[in-house]
Nucleic acid binder design. Structure first.
Length: 551
RNA sequence: GCGCCCGUAGUUCAGCUGGAUAGAAUGUCAGAUUCCGAUUCUGAAGGUCGCAGGUUCGACUCCUGUCGGGCGUACCA
């Protein structure tokens, strides 16, 4: 794509020497780019309108119209050049992150806990960032940092021994584990012996006791089996499943580093790192007074492991915002350790998730399973297909793509900082700004292309300069930039929102201009349709959605 | 108490490092298909951008204060 901003800046700076590159701002109301001349008024001792008018008079840029209006110097790029740009730049060839390695920690399921709606955001935001970074040429490493360490697994074993059995576990899998977990927590409130028993089993797991470890591994494989089935439906990939337990014996090395820098202190019997220089953060707790390592210690070990294993340029943690302090502390510790890569650590946080206005709680068995939500959406999609397109050949597969797509797109459509009140009605909405809307538009494009045959042939760039067609072209022209923006801001919604905009523009074009109108104009319109389709499919992939050819 | 985040049409949300008339979707109402897929498109109505100051030629955007909501705040993760 042509870098118009630079062209404009270079030309404009000859007439207005004091301006900076960022004074050239994109605009969509009156022109493509503009330079507000208000700042210059003081320096040049002239009215902004006069400055703009004089500059417009002097400036001549090939293919770009210059005009002065209300103190702004406006630049409008010839539509043909933008059209040409789009059709001469292959989609997906923009690789600004080639050579970079980024670690992305997301989903991070807890062993023995079912995949519920609370896991959706981390999974889907991380999964989309993984695709986006890859698309931009980065070597992305997807890490599922399993929650496979802690006393709760000791509790689970004692619960299993008291109330469970192999057969039920075999047959009911995760349902059985959840039930045991809930029952354990309930009975532990009154039965104090239970906690001690749990601690004992927990220690046995750590000591490598064959029975305890075997049982725990069983729990782990049951959990992962279910999680992987969900990842499959969501188009989520990982390169590593190393969990917390993997880092337990690597904490000591991290402690050595802390000791070498004289950062490790003992306070009330616990190992801590003081962080209160300047802004007073609570200290980071490395080890409990009973010697057990804590969350941040294992994260510290994991950070070193990732740095040594992957040599990342960036390491992201897609975790809810309520853990903000934890990551702030973790990054601060690395900074105190003098690691230059401490600045490359980033907490990609997102808001709290509630369901229909209610908080979630696995512990009390108050959960909304993701698979139930997905199934409901798929069922609805199937019903709509049966009603409107009963002859469709692979209904089940299409319903799966559309239903799951609706839920995922809904989760990825809003900025991640805001709290998310998950509503089934919204997730299952197929109209308006939704995944199915984008998928529908894609199917519509493919249908037109199929009818027209493949031959697009030669066409004139000027036949796509009418408002309806050009609006779509414009959105395609800086699609790469939108994807890049999404990566830089760790914000997949930038991609999903762009897709919707492209669809809106295309659907308007579809209604305004007849595509199969014959002649060279038809070729041009088919080319636009093809490019829109290609972009939608590519973009849907970035936000984890399938693009069915028909629906 | 202290810290972080959020507050924009009835509802859910956009609004890029401050720039021209604050935009969508949804819901409501009124329309569009003998013709490329109506999960679509067109139009109407709907706003003191929580509130009050400040900085600026210009503030939804930056600063201060304030109110409301969420989250966190040493041996859970």
């Amino acid at each position: 794509m042509t870098d118009y901003k630079t062209i404009i800046y270079e030309a404009a700076s000859k007439v207005l020497p004091t301006i900076e590159r960022d004074d050239v701002t994109a605009s969509d109301a009156f022109c493509d780019y503009c330079v507000p001349c208000f700042k210059l008024a003081k320096v040049l001792r002239k009215a902004p309108a006069a400055i703009a008018a004089e500059a417009a008079e002097k400036l001549k840029i090939d293919g770009i119209e210059v005009a002065a209006l209300n103190g702004y110097l406006n630049f409008t790029i010839a539509r043909e050049s933008v059209v040409k740009d789009v059709f001469t730049s292959p989609l997906g060839s923009y690789k600004p992150l080639a050579g970079k390695t980024v670690c992305i920690d997301y989903s991070s399921v807890n062993i023995a806990k079912p995949f519920h709606i609370g896991h959706l955001m981390t999974t889907v935001i991380g999964g989309a960032l993984y695709k986006i970074y890859r698309a931009l040429g980065a070597n992305a490493v997807g890490i599922n940092h399993l929650g496979d360490f802690g006393t709760q697994f000791g509790g689970l074993i004692s619960a299993f021994r008291r109330w469970g059995n192999e057969k039920a576990l075999e047959e009911r899998g995760l349902d059985e584990l959840l039930e045991l977990y809930v029952r354990y927590n309930k009975e532990a409130e009154n039965d104090t012996a239970l906690a001690g028993e749990a601690r004992e089993w927990s220690n046995k797991i750590e000591q490598g006791d064959a029975y305890a470890v075997g049982l725990f591994e069983k729990f782990k494989s049951i959990t992962l089996e279910q999680a992987k089935a969900v990842y499959d439906r969501l188009n989520i990939e990982f390169d590593s499943y190393l969990g917390e337990s993997f880092y337990v014996d690597k904490v000591a090395a991290a402690e050595d580093k802390l000791r070498a820098k004289n950062l490790l202190k003992i306070s009330d019997g616990a190992e801590i790192v003081e962080l209160s220089d300047g802004d007073d953060m609570p200290p980071a707790l490395i080890r409990r007074s009973d010697g057990a390592s804590l969350y941040i210690a294992r994260d510290l070990a994991a950070a070193y492991y990732r740095r040594e294993t992957y040599g990342f340029d960036k390491c992201m943690y897609v975790v809810a915002s309520h853990q903000a302090l934890h990551f702030k502390q973790l990054f601060k510790v690395l900074e105190l350790l003098g690691e230059p890569w401490a600045k490359d650590m980033v907490h990609v946080s997102y808001g709290m998730v509630s369901v229909e206005g209610m908080a979630l709680s696995t512990r009390h068995g108050n959960v909304l399973f993701l698979s139930d939500v997905l199934n409901a959406a798929v069922e609805k999609a199937l019903a709509i297909i049966e009603e409107r397109n009963p002859e469709l050949s692979d209904k089940a597969a299409v319903a799966e793509s559309v239903g799951v797509g609706a839920v995922v797109f809904d989760a990825l459509y809003d900025g991640r900082v805001k709290d998310k009140n998950f509503s089934l009605a919204d997730a299952l909405n197929f109209d308006g700004e939704t995944g199915p809307y984008v998928q529908y538009t894609y199917a519509r494009c493919k249908s037109v292309l199929a009818k027209a045959g493949d031959a697009a042939g030669e066409f004139d760039y000027s036949s796509l300069t009418d408002d309806a067609a050009y609006d779509a072209v414009k959105l395609l022209s800086d699609f790469d930039e939108a994807v890049y923006n999404a990566a830089v801001k760790y914000e997949p919604s930038i991609v999903s929102r762009r897709l919707v905009k492209i669809c809106q523009a295309f659907n308007r074009f579809y209604n305004a201009d007849r595509i199969m109108c014959g002649g060279k104009t038809q070729n041009a319109r088919l080319a636009l349709t093809a490019r829109v389709a290609e972009t939608l499919k590519y973009g849907l992939g970035l936000v984890l959605l399938d693009a069915p050819e028909r629906m």
